[in-house]
Design a protein around this nucleic acid. Structure first.
Lengths: 228, 228
DNA sequence: TGTACATCAGTGAACGCGCGTTCACTGATGTAC
DNA sequence: TGTACATCAGTGAACGCGCGTTCACTGATGTAC
């Protein structure tokens, strides 16, 4: 991606560009039918290429999916990073400029998730059947949790910590080295699971016939996390 | 299912039995590879039958999946019903015998979800790509929400209701006719999304390398719902 | 009780399809002198 | 600047596979008299 317009020989630039183009078409197809329906031949046809042509750019279907999963994680992490750094806003700049980082993260997450639900599910949904995620993703997942911990640290008023917070602090193999106290660890995990609960049901369409506005439910959960 | 051992001609009983057997093998395959990998031919082979034989029992692949989805919803509703009625326990009878219905429901839901994660995802997960759920499911989904509302009614202490509760009461196309006040509606929806947040991430294996015990996280969320 | 007939479960062959992937090839693009 | 060669993108044919589904059939099971 970063190589597309940059250095390298013309052939290298062309290669990178076609690779990106293949991925883009892959995302379009994933957006339509989900990740398990990804087909190299179908992508090739859509690009006006012959099936085997794609093997110049990817070793096979698995490598393509691996790359897409990695990109999805990276994209989420970058989006959240940008939101925290104030370079972008999850909801629009007219809102509260003093919004805590946790609110920015939440709205950034929501925007990213709904922008392409299938991409969201590729990261946080049902694992793709015969496929195992690459190791890099756990690194990026950890990076995301660290951002979350940072944002939770800045939050005021932690009442008495729940018993689970202690368990969490004693059994922690994520965000290692981060100085967050037990209550903050708990807050971060809760932030993750609660917002995922709303987002995944919304993105899958499970609120569809119910009548209420999912955005308000999301904001209500966020409020509870900020002030609870 | 209910017909298997019951009345009808011998041929009808045989038919029902083979249908059930097909479904059972289908569940096994779904448990292994997910619903999108369901294949009639593969099921037939596993049963020692020829491929086309299954067309005596199901009009095609879609009808099979439809039936499985319906059964999954039904199974969840029945499980929750039984738990609330005290005919079964979600966690073991030695626990608090005075546990509120909401806690019973929660543990019933968790037990059901982890018993077969792919069945859970068939109900509350990413929709199967080219497939649309049958209408009956919304009826069962509503039945489940009503049980939830009943359980939430029995809960003590509702402080001042959140603004979202009012919105929810004014835009409600589910559990219609149920006398739950706004705060209870809010509680029920929150119960659903929060527990789903934990369960779906746990069932998909997203807590795997993190070290903590998902069961404790689940209970912590439940406690918060009961006492928050 | 026995015979004649209807019902229906299951088979095997076949259809067309799309899949991932390999291989030997053509033709264009870039490099070296 | 022009020529000779190497690199490499893309093609078309082919392989084997499994899929959903149809069709005409065989043979067993049940029913009617």
């Amino acid at each position: 991606m970063a190589e597309t317009g940059g250095g390298g020989t013309p052939r290298e630039r062309y290669r990178a560009q076609v690779r990106a183009e293949i991925k883009q078409h892959a995302w379009e197809r994933i957006g339509t039918a989900g990740a398990s329906a990804l087909s190299l031949n179908a992508i090739a046809k859509q690009m006006g290429l012959s099936g085997p042509a794609l093997y110049r750019y990817f070793a096979g279907r698995d490598e393509l999916i691996t790359e897409l999963v990695r990109d999805a994680y990276r994209s989420l992490a970058d989006t959240l990073r940008a939101v925290v750094d104030g370079k972008a806003s999850g909801k629009g700049a007219q809102g509260a400029p003093l919004a805590p980082d946790l609110a920015k993260l939440a709205h950034g997450l929501r925007g990213w998730a709904l922008e392409d639900p299938n991409r969201y599910f590729l990261v946080y949904g049902t694992p793709v059947p015969g496929y195992h995620a690459p190791d890099d993703t756990t690194v990026i997942a950890d990076e995301i949790m660290r951002m979350l911990l940072d944002a939770c640290m800045a939050l005021p008023g932690d009442r008495e910590p729940a018993p689970f917070a202690a368990h969490l602090a004693e059994h922690r193999q994520w965000g290692e080295g981060h100085p967050a106290p037990p209550a903050v660890l708990h807050k971060a995990v809760t932030f993750w699971t609660r917002l995922h609960g709303v987002l995944s049901l919304e993105a899958a369409g499970h609120f569809n016939g119910m009548g209420f506005d999912p955005a308000r439910l999301f904001d209500a959960e966020l409020d509870d996390l900020l002030n609870g």
